[in-house]
């Protein structure tokens, strides 16, 4: 399976990654090679195999419904690029 320029552009957009136009050929090349490697999977018959999402066959543990976290806004927002009145700011969102 190889990918082309438009696949790269589409995937980069979906993943919200800005890719320099000049780097696109390299990504086309790399991703095609990696998918070529991945392609080896198709040689195996997996018709009756149960997918394995996780190494452990365990069930989800449930926590008690208790409020255990207190307000740490100042501490967390000290890390933020832009805040105002306790809100995280982003460029205007138009719906």
């Amino acid at each position: 399976m190889s990918v082309d320029r438009s696949d790269i552009t589409k995937v980069a957009r979906l993943a919200r990654l800005k890719i320099d136009e000049a780097d696109v050929p390299q990504y086309v090349d790399n991703l095609s090679n990696i998918l070529g490697l991945v392609e080896q999977m198709s040689a195996v018959n997996t018709d009756d195999v149960v997918p394995m999402a996780h190494p452990l066959d365990a069930a989800q543990r449930l926590r008690a419904d208790e409020v255990s976290d207190t307000n740490q806004r100042d501490k967390f927002q000290a890390l933020a690029p832009q805040v105002e009145s306790g809100l995280y700011l982003v460029p205007k969102v138009i719906e």
Partner: peptide
Amino acid sequence: LYTRSRGEGFGLEVKRRIMIGTY
């Protein structure tokens, strides 16, 4: 904001893997 922050913040290999994963 998203594409440039992520485009600048991540290196080549990370971007490659994110793209493979997204694909």
